[in-house]
Design a protein around this nucleic acid. Structure first.
Lengths: 274, 274
DNA sequence: AGACCATGTGATCGTTCGCACACCGGAGTG
DNA sequence: CACTCCGGTGTGCGAACGATCACATGGTCT
């Protein structure tokens, strides 16, 4: 047992990541979260903090971010733009971020994915910055903006159109018509509430229609919902729990709730938000 | 992954140039995964790393990927060179503002209007803040954002959807379909260039299609174009001069040009930009 | 056969990374 | 007040890894 440790660590040739990859990841991390600490990045990327510092030096030099004591933050010319850090997107931040990161694992380069409107899916958009060759369909202007921010030729961003709700979803007949003509491999669903009886819900009835159309247009359906969504019922249901193929939530979800969900959804994952 | 390679090598004793196949596989690998390391490819393709390096040299040279230390990553080709929105929005500011203000005079409360993408129409959006009871159809995210910023219950903002061009127009079949189902009283048209021969033009051919659909969906057509647009011809024409009902421009337009325009457009107005 | 091309080999040189160590300033603590 | 601990930072060096070159090899083309 104890001798296996050396073996195990040596068998896999450490699969060190390319420096460039690290850089991309660091930048996207900084862009989505506003700031990062050196030690976080070191454990996240599994390299020494010295390496992270050197990376930050380079990226700072290149203007991609600004080094500060303890880590790095977004470079100022980039910082002023987003008015989007309002009340809603600040709740359960760590959990949502962790969920978004776990969700990003499901996306491979070259895929066609759908991102429903929502704060968690918005964070997911940031996590997808480094993935090449994506086609993304979304009904959220904010999500679209994330991708527009760093434009890439290998990226195809499609906005459904429609009327914008206060929570930033484009809805209505235009959205529905657009979605009817499209098909995505994987759809990431943000919800307002979920419960055993009502399934997945949203407070906005128009949004509900659009969500249904989106689900209709998709293959694999992945729901992103932190624990605070459990037991919440919005005005309008748009899917049953069993419609989801995967649910990603955090580890603060009660065991009861997890059991109910696992009973209806083939793949339920709980990630740690800390 | 694909094991055809091994098969091929066994059946055909290297009769064909395998290099091409390796290249294809390397590129697709990079495209789907974002990055690869030389050693991975070497074992995957069962050739020496030297060969892989040479392959990467070629592919880098060809622009299919970018070599980095340890491997290669996708090239984020920034080749598309249309004037981006930010670059454009700073030119002829005073004139555009004056034109926008004059255009706002055409909008009465309760109207249904269309705003094409463009910097002048974007400014017009700002001028329309005070007008009650509007329904606005636009294919520009930035225009939509202006209205979203101060949300009003008596306002209906409809976004066409589509794929976003660098100059912030949503285009493509989704936009066209959405527009086909709509009708606006008054359409405000921003142009990239106008000339006697080519009429109204844009550098982006997709945008051109969408613009035509927009025009099709509208009653009165008002073109906003400062004097610098005269004589400029973009790649693609989307309307004749005579299709416009009103043209609003500034007083720096030459008398000749004004005469030509007045000959084809019933109502040509020149406003002062200072 | 001889030129030719793609590929592998080994030597050499450049890069990257982790570790050990030193520095620097702030918060306790005696 | 001096003293020490502590987290963050930077430097130097060695080891491992990657890049590159020159050359050898073993096939194909004419």
């Amino acid at each position: 047992m104890n001798t296996d440790m050396n073996l195990a660590t040596n068998i896999f040739p450490v699969s060190r990541s390319l420096a460039q990859e690290r850089h991309d990841l660091i930048v996207s991390e900084v862009r989505t979260r506003g700031s990062v600490r050196v030690t976080e990045l070191a454990t996240l990327l599994d390299v020494s903090d010295m390496t992270i510092r050197r990376d930050l030096d380079v990226l700072d030099e290149a203007g991609a971010l600004v080094k500060v004591h303890g880590g790095a933050k977004v470079s100022t010319d980039h910082a002023a733009d987003q008015p989007s850090f309002d009340a809603k997107s600040n709740t359960q931040t760590a959990e949502k971020q962790a969920i978004a990161r776990a969700a990003a694992e499901f996306v491979r380069g070259g895929a066609t994915i759908g991102l429903m409107a929502g704060t968690t899916t918005w964070r997911l958009a940031g996590e997808l910055a480094a993935i090449p060759n994506l086609t993304v369909v979304t009904n959220s202007m904010r999500v679209a903006e994330v991708f527009n921010e760093f434009w890439r030729a290998d990226r195809n961003i499609i906005l459904t159109g429609g009327v914008r709700t206060p929570s930033d979803a484009l809805v209505g007949p235009i959205a529905a018509t657009a979605l009817a003509a499209l098909h995505v491999d994987t759809l990431f669903i943000g919800v307002h509430g979920m419960s055993e009886r009502a399934g997945f819900t949203t407070p906005n009835i128009l949004e509900s229609d659009t969500n249904r159309a989106f689900i209709q247009a998709s293959g694999r359906k992945i729901v992103l919902a932190d624990h605070s969504k459990w037991g919440v019922t919005g005005l309008s249901s748009f899917a049953n729990l069993s419609d989801a193929d995967v649910l990603i939530t955090d580890d603060k979800l009660s065991a009861d709730a997890a059991a109910v969900l696992a009973n209806q959804i083939p793949d339920v994952r709980q990630v740690s938000g800390s």
